[in-house]
Design a binder for these strands. Sequence first.
DNA 1: AAACAGACCAACCGCAACTAT
DNA 2: GATAGTTGCGGTTGGTCTGTT
Length: 466
Amino acid sequence: MDMEKSPEAALTSSPEEEKAAEGHGEEAAEQEGDVTPLVLKKGPWTAAEDAMLTDHVRRHGEGNWNAVQRMTGLLRCGKSCRLRWTNHLRPNLKKGSFSPDEELLIAQLHAQLGNKWARMAAHLPGRTDNEIKNYWNTRTKRRQRSGLPVYPPEVQLQLALSKRCRYDEFSPLASPQLSGTTANNVQELDAGSAAGAGYTSSRPAPLDLARQLTVTNQTVQFLSPPPFSAPSSPWARPFARNAQYFQFAHSSPVSPSTPTGPVRPAATPDLSLGYGGVCGAADQSRLPPLSPSPGPRVELPSNQLLGQQAMPPTSATVAGLGGAALPDQQQNAASLEKMLQELHDAIKVVPPALDPANGAAARPGGGGAVLERHGGGVPENKLGARDDDMETLFDLMMPTLTAPETLPLAAAPNHSGSTSQPSSDEQEPSTVDLGVDLQGAGGASSSGQDWGLDGLCQWSNMSRIC
DNA sequence: AAACAGACCAACCGCAACTAT
DNA sequence: GATAGTTGCGGTTGGTCTGTT
């Protein structure tokens, strides 16, 4: 039922007619009157058309796009008018190339949302979904062709953590309703960004690494207030912009479905980073599937992103799959250590403050973990903090390895992280398939925007360890 | 200088959800 | 409830620009 197509289809009867309309549509409309159906124009907009459309919107506001043609004589269908206005004429549009901040944000949003361009655009004021889509598709194509990872390392780690977070939220213990838009869900998480704009995803808000960490029973806050100096990796810069996500009270928020009492697997991180089989066959029975099983909810990749299956497996992929034979806690620990090393350029996690009562680190709800940007100067106790990071994260990781089989199956995202079939938010993929996005598995802490082959080597090594 | 390939961008198409009658 | 109309979204296409050979 394409109500916008039918007029065009009816009015544009032949290619010749359509072609003629492109050059003389306006004149034709004036001459032909009511007897002959209007031939709507296609193709690039002229300045005069833009002016007409802009004037119309100024007078009547946005919406009712089909009326534009009737009221102004503009020989464009409503759909075309809306598109033109939204993508080019609307005020406050930001033109030009994307800033590094925006690029990282897009990567993070894509990791969380898939090909939800409109939602992504809601997080990028002045940018349009079309713009983001074009950017992502071309960039992704290029990167995949180069064998580079689609996502930067920060996003990869965030994905790994958010995965665990989602397991929490989607755990069988949680009400199914929670998978929608209920309390403590994205509506709140998203409060700090771009007005929400219908953002009803069950995914965490972009750049919500702090929340991910919070769910790991650590509270997070910056030691030094923004603005931060630029980190070594431009991909880390948006952390500063989204500093609000890192500021939590010590009474750490807990995922609504996080059960109290003994730590469930829900509160344990899946540190496999999506490397299929990275945790080994033995553990796969306990962990959510990392790669989608064919089914109605499998997300199909964009045709523009094809070639992924044909892509030669990177060392990381091979190592990840091959590493399935060598999964154990130590290997995960090694992976984790690598990850931390990568991330310590941008983030430092200070261990929770000791509980004065028992001398133990205050854990749930009382954690004192603090994130600190390096921009404010290298912490003196960096190494010590890292050790504590390891200890903390080891603690978090171990339950994963012994997780019962009660973990809910993750939805089956596709290789590109793209979305397709779900028609509602509830059907959105609840995980992001790192398996393929990390196929290129490079992108550690390269200093350039194009996190490069150096990173590839590092991540490959990490996988090999696993 | 010409040919070619890739990147980039604007626009179109089809579909689905939503709203009004 | 059915139908018509509107809006929004994601995928795709085609033209133009730019860099390379």
